[in-house]
Design a protein around this nucleic acid. Structure first.
Lengths: 235, 235
DNA sequence: TGGGATTTGTTCGTATGTATT
DNA sequence: GAATACATACGAACAAATCCC
């Protein structure tokens, strides 16, 4: 139960990474309270450092800080989820456009290895599967060398896992590995437009798989609308 | 010389806004040191709150925090500048695609008014001119209603002003107002592709106006390369 | 190199605000 | 609605690193 040990000035970042990891692993589910005191006690640092980490996380959209009421793991709405994936697509489109036909042999191998790891984890290790699926996208982004782009894609991939945790269907991330393979093939072939199209399809299928439940818990008036129409009632 | 006065839990954000404004107004130039103590003294708060604001600003890319060495206003490199504009274009492309043919009468008027203000400020109020030019883009983004997109466009527009402060030619933002007008016209007409093309051209002209000086202050070896080639020397 | 001045890193106490009974 | 318990907001002070002469 030793706390964080690192040289001066680095511990806040360690706290940040620990919390981020816990959130992405869903050890801390969306909505979970994040009391500065108990976190600090658990990690062996004072509340100040926990606070700094929470501020960082809130800037990244993983944590929501409610003034005077403490921080909680963010619980993005369905609409925020859809907007997030829309934005993510715009950025990942830039990623594949940048990378098409530009990958070095070493990079191609790295991506192949990654996809291999995804296949290896498929089926029997759900948590790893999910993590690797996200990391494929951040790995691609990192190969652009565009710092801003990398940072935003990382952020959105992280937040995507919150969305999937809230609204995703169980076992919904399994079918994506082959799509990763197709994207890589298009990039290697330098077929930019096809890579964009594949990425579009890939992200869209994630979105709809995850966000389709929209119908289920929407406003009762919307739910009833179709029944009314079927009965020749209302509008 | 009164300090910040606001209710509990809001003062850190007030510090954040004050510093951000000072940076964007170039009252604090890129590279300026940001000592926690003197800032706190000037704003009437303790270092704790200044620190929180600095952390926020560093997450936004406006401030660079060097461990044990204090924070400074960010000084993005030319390469970071180019990457930033590339990313910005990908996002603003999404903005105009989302908005084309979808603007309400009220929104069109708001944009027209804004462009009017830009024209009014042109020539005699450089600082206002620059600020309004950026705000046109954030105003457009805000009309999408996409929170993630809004946040990133805001961030990149803010950081763009750092780039322009560092590498932009003086008086370089003057010719942009008419381009804003053209973009609005394309959006009103619902001509999505044309709006995208105009936005592309608009941002690219800003980029090249600003980032062309690359040649001037680059590595001396690069500078000499063209002379060497002209003289049939080296490679 | 060395040592004092300055600035950052961190802890913790008190005040203030929120939730609960 | 008041009292209590608990969490956050903020600041003062100490420790450690850096800078400067």
């Amino acid at each position: 139960m030793r706390g964080i040990s690192a040289k001066s000035g680095m511990r806040a970042q360690a706290v940040h990474r620990a919390l981020k990891r816990a959130i992405l692993d869903q050890a801390l589910a969306p909505g979970s309270k994040l009391p500065e005191d108990s976190i600090g006690e658990r990690l062996g640092v004072s509340r100040t450092l926990v606070r700094e980490a929470l501020v960082r996380l809130s800037e990244e959209g993983l944590v929501e800080m409610r003034p005077n009421k403490g921080a909680v793991v963010a619980r993005p709405s369905l609409e925020e989820g859809r907007d997030l994936f829309t934005t993510r697509l715009a950025l990942e489109r830039l990623v594949v456009e940048t990378l098409a036909g530009q990958l070095g042999a070493q990079q191609e191998q790295q991506l192949l290895d990654h996809i291999g790891a995804e296949e290896a984890a498929r089926g029997h290790d759900q948590a790893t599967s999910i993590r690797l699926a996200g990391e494929f996208h951040t790995l691609l982004a990192s190969m652009t060398g565009n710092a801003t782009l990398i940072r935003y894609v990382n952020e959105l991939v992280a937040r995507s896992s919150l969305i999937l945790a809230l609204y995703g269907r169980p076992h919904s991330s399994e079918c994506a590995v082959s799509e990763h393979h197709e994207i890589l093939a298009a990039l290697k072939a330098g077929e930019s437009a096809r890579a964009v199209k594949l990425m579009h399809h890939h992200l869209e299928s994630i979105t709809t798989r995850a966000l389709l439940p929209k119908e289920q818990n929407s406003d009762i008036r919307d739910v009833l609308a179709s029944y009314a129409a079927a009965e020749g009632l209302a509008v």
